[in-house]
């Protein structure tokens, strides 16, 4: 490589090791028809799934059935009780966490649904959390209900005996 001779004014200067170019853009996001139905339900203290023509119930539904590629249109009100089908224990602190570590994040398959929801598992020591555990939703106070998943504070064990978990997708054949 050819040697670069700097002008005298730049000789001996510290190298530029980083530049900051902040960028901020605001987006007006459209939730869509199916997500609007789900979030409206949440703001009323209900969990609404959607049944696809093939029979599967998705919660929350983004509006499309991935098996058929058609809209999900039949709302199904689901119980606030389900089974923990997987979980992880978070031991890593990260920016914006807002939770005391360690804590448990779980996939909860509500009774009557074919798609697990992700949420926090609390009121249970992390070492006692297990797949197959029966859990129930703990909601915010009625006046705090809003169209977002923080209206459910977390899920906790409901005391029912554990059940055998069939892995999601295990019943799918092709």
């Amino acid at each position: 490589m050819a040697e670069i001779r700097l002008p005298a004014a730049l000789e001996g200067k510290e190298l530029v090791r980083s530049v900051r170019t902040p960028a901020r853009m605001d987006f007006l996001y459209t939730a869509g028809e199916a997500t609007t139905r789900f979030l409206t339900g949440i703001s009323e203290g209900k969990i609404l799934g959607e049944r696809a023509p093939g029979g599967k119930v998705y919660v929350p539904s983004r509006g499309a059935d991935p098996q058929l590629g058609v809209p999900t249109t039949e709302p199904v009100e689901l119980p606030h009780v389900g089974t923990l089908v997987s979980f992880c224990v978070v031991n890593v602190a990260f920016y914006g966490q807002g939770m005391e570590i360690p804590y448990t994040s779980g996939l909860i398959l509500l009774d009557g649904s074919d798609l697990p929801l992700m949420h926090l598992i609390q009121e249970c020591p992390v070492e006692d959390v297990r797949i197959g555990m029966r859990v129930e939703a703990v909601w915010v106070e009625a006046h705090e209900l809003a169209p977002n998943l923080e209206s459910i504070r977390y899920f906790r064990p409901n005391g029912e005996p554990d059940v055998v978990v069939t892995q999601p997708g295990a019943g799918v054949t092709w």
Binding site: T30, A31, G32, E33, A34, T35, R62, G63, A64, G69, V70, P71
Partner: peptide, 16 residues
């Protein structure tokens, strides 16, 4: 501006 449907809802009729 499509302000009712999300992207997948907008796309499905075109695919069909």
């Amino acid at each position: 501006a499509e302000t009712v449907r999300n992207e997948v809802e907008m796309l499905m009729p075109v695919i069909a």
